[in-house]
Amino acid sequence: MRPSVQEMIAKSNGKKKKKVLEKIIPIILFLIASVSVLTSIGIVLTLIFETITFFTRVPIFDFIFGTTWLPFSNNEAQFGIWPLIIGTLKVTLIAIIVAVPIGISAAIYLSEYASENVRRVVKPVLEVLAGVPTIVYGFFALTFVTPVLQAIYPEIKIFNAISPGIVVGIMIIPMIASLSEDAMSSVPKSIREGALAMGSTKFEVAWKITIPAALSGIVASIVLAVSRAIGETMIVSLAAGSTPRFDGDFTDSIQTMTAYIVQVSKGDAGYGTTIYYSIYAVGFTLFLFTMAMNILAGYVSKRFREEY
């Protein structure tokens, strides 16, 4: 006759191993979870320290207020950040002009008009669009969109702000569409039915009920998309050129903050040179821009959220 189950359990549970494990595991997991915090701290400290080194060589005033970016000049190097910011903003502006109307229209169509079957097809396709590597988009901008633009408007140079702007716009459409659609879908059906029962058309429901109610989510999605556009690197590296300029010309070669970092990284600016440190100063500026957008998006969606 075997011993009872309870006796066997009592015997095996007498061992200490189990109790020690229960105490150690949470500590290990906490350490693992703190890796993400350490990453953030690492990013901020890295950027700050290397940027400070940069400012020991280039006056901070010149960096923040300068309008000439000439890092590679041997004797007349100038590090005024504004041309890179202007370049970034040009691309972002075009991207937003492309992505906002299309993204929000797609969101309205999916949440208000589309049948379940249409949604089942369209949403995965949008996911695919979001999953295309940016290097592929960059190649597409350079070898397809730019030639098409040149055929329409011959003044456009091979490197310009419009073509990468359009393609960055295509890249962020899925983001705006799916986040806005989430916001619209979370407007309760009962509110829509209330409006429909009074004789509203679907368009009136979308325009007067759903969009106002989901506005905070829609705005947040746009702000997040702006942040993505600002930080986008490969599309602009391939198709926007490497000519930092402080003007309003969209048709000629420009340079964005991200493209500058890539330009220096793939060249052979030695470790410890001013140019080496300049990528951290530019990276820090970029980080501040995107962080501001992310915080703004969080604020908008929290502060103006509708309570149903």
């Binding site: 979870a33 703190s34 993400s36 915090v37 990453t39 953030s40 690492g42 990013i43 890295t46 950027l47 290397e50 997040l224 942040s227 600002i230 930080g231 986008e232 690197t233 991200t258 970092i261 890539v262 990284s265 990528i279 951290y280 990276g283 970029l286 980080f287 995107t290 962080m291 957008m293 992310n294 915080i295 969080g298």
Partner: peptide
């Protein structure tokens, strides 16, 4: 809360900045 907030912020950092982190660390 801080860890949670940190993770969502980290998701919004441009990949090129992660490159700078990797280069330094």
């Amino acid at each position: 809360n801080f860890i949670r907030m940190n993770i969502s912020n980290l998701a919004g950092v441009p990949s090129v900045v992660f490159g700078l982190l990797g280069l330094t660390i």
